[in-house]
Design a protein around this nucleic acid. Structure first.
Length: 218
DNA sequence: TAAGTGATGCAT
DNA sequence: TGCATCACTTAA
């Protein structure tokens, strides 16, 4: 045969599947987080949409001391108080960004931190942003995936349901199959926080090889 | 296991 | 204004 299998980059520019509607994010982050597992986090590139399936996520709640919006609205956490279905992107440890999907009605500060995705689309583009030896290192952590997808401050507050924003969460039409292949859904405690550590608000697909390093050893 | 990094937010 | 803290990553 004249051609080998297409490389990931050659099949990496999918037309955009339907973005999730804002109503998807209206319930509490505690409800939304596990439902997000298997759906696509996608970033627009010159050659199509890059990204992949969400495989690890944490919920941060309005009455939760670990939540950035627990105390009051500030310039930093403003997006969390906005309408559901927007991005909350924050800068941390002087080096990194983390990405959240805002949940709950406007005025209620809840969000889901996306901690890991599988690099299914646009792997070459992601590798250009974040050179690594192992594919498994590309997006297996909240700041890693922001580097790979070039998610930075300008994306704070954008509408995840509007493709024009360049950053969307889209419905995975094969989510049942995907989740089955990465079963089970594990529910456990969140990572890297110093308060409310006991709450079962982290969710991940135990069969995925792309969950974050700290999650793997726990 | 620890250092790096700088914005953030609360205390002064 | 000052300073401890921080939803992390990388190099050892």
């Amino acid at each position: 045969m004249k051609h080998s299998e297409p490389s990931p980059s050659e099949i990496s520019a999918p037309s955009l599947p339907s973005p999730l509607a804002s109503s998807f994010y209206e319930p509490s982050a505690e409800v939304v987080a596990p439902k997000l597992l298997g759906h696509f986090l996608l970033r627009k590139t010159p050659r199509g949409w890059a990204g992949g399936e969400i495989v690890e996520a944490e919920a941060y709640l309005a009455n939760d001391p670990a939540c950035h919006g627990f105390r009051r609205e500030t310039a930093r956490n403003r997006s969390m108080y906005g309408p559901p279905g927007r991005a909350y992107v924050y800068f941390i440890y002087g080096n990194y960004f983390c990405f959240n999907a805002v949940c709950a009605p406007k005025g209620v500060a809840e969000a889901v931190l996306v901690r890991a995705i599988e690099p299914t689309f646009g792997e070459d583009w992601m590798r250009a942003n974040r050179p690594v030896d192992e594919a498994r290192e590309l997006t297996s952590g909240p700041a890693k995936l922001c580097l790979a997808l070039d998610i930075t401050r300008p994306f704070d507050g954008v509408d995840l349901g509007d493709p024009r924003s360049g950053l969307v969460i889209a419905q995975n039409p094969n989510i049942k199959t995907f989740r089955k292949s990465r079963a089970p859904v594990v529910t456990t405690t969140r990572i890297g926080i110093g308060v409310a550590e006991h709450l079962p608000l982290r969710f991940y697909l135990g069969g995925s090889h792309f969950i974050s390093k700290r999650a793997r050893k726990l």
